[in-house]
Simulated scan of single mutants.
Amino acid sequence: MPTHSEAATILGERLRAARNERQLTLEDLGVLAGMHWTNIGKIERGQVHPSVETLVRLSTALDLDPAPFITGLNADMYPGRAHKLTARDLLAARRDQER
C-alpha cells in the first residue's frame, strides 16, 4: 500500500524509531496506548494520518512529548494543496490594497 503523504512517512518513521529505542513491540505499544497494534503499524508505515488524540496517546505511552513527532512538518508535505499562501501573505496583500 502506498504512503499517504511525505508528512505521514516522516511521522511514522519517528514513531517507529521511538518505539524501537524503548524495545517495545507494536503489541506492547498498543496495550500502553489503548489502541490496536495494527493501527500503530499503519501509522508507522505512513499509510494513516493519526489524529491529534492518537498522537497524544502514543506519545504518552512512550513517555514523550508529541511535539518532536511533527516538528518540521508542513502543509507542502500533503497532496492536493491548492495554494502556497499563508496568513502573512494574506495580511500583506490586505495592507497593499489599503495603500
Results as ranks from 00 to 15, higher is better:
31 V>S: 15
15 L>F: 06
58 L>D: 05
65 D>K: 10
32 L>C: 03
48 V>A: 05
52 V>Y: 13
21 E>A: 15
21 E>S: 11
68 P>F: 05
38 T>D: 06
43 I>G: 04
39 N>I: 00
71 T>K: 04
26 L>R: 15
27 E>C: 08
56 V>S: 01
25 T>N: 12
65 D>M: 10
48 V>P: 01
12 G>W: 03
26 L>I: 13
15 L>P: 07
18 A>H: 04
71 T>P: 04
51 S>N: 13
31 V>Q: 11
66 P>T: 01
69 F>W: 09
23 Q>P: 08
52 V>G: 07
16 R>W: 13
70 I>Q: 00
35 M>Y: 06
46 G>T: 09
14 R>C: 07
26 L>D: 11
20 N>Q: 15
39 N>L: 08
36 H>S: 05
21 E>H: 11
28 D>K: 14
35 M>D: 09
47 Q>D: 12
54 T>M: 10
13 E>M: 15
35 M>N: 11
22 R>V: 13
68 P>V: 00
50 P>F: 10
69 F>T: 02
33 A>S: 11
69 F>K: 01
19 R>I: 10
22 R>T: 11
56 V>H: 06
9 T>I: 07
27 E>Y: 15
18 A>L: 09
32 L>Y: 12
59 S>I: 02
70 I>H: 07
69 F>S: 03
23 Q>E: 11
28 D>Q: 12
15 L>Y: 08
44 E>Q: 12
40 I>K: 03
53 E>C: 02
44 E>H: 08
55 L>P: 01
50 P>E: 12
54 T>N: 06
59 S>A: 13
54 T>R: 00
43 I>D: 04
67 A>I: 09
60 T>F: 04
48 V>H: 09
35 M>W: 09
14 R>W: 02
65 D>H: 14
37 W>Y: 14
13 E>T: 02
46 G>I: 08
57 R>L: 07
50 P>C: 07
57 R>N: 02
19 R>F: 11
67 A>H: 12
49 H>G: 04
24 L>A: 00
41 G>L: 11
73 L>Y: 01
47 Q>F: 08
17 A>P: 01
46 G>R: 12
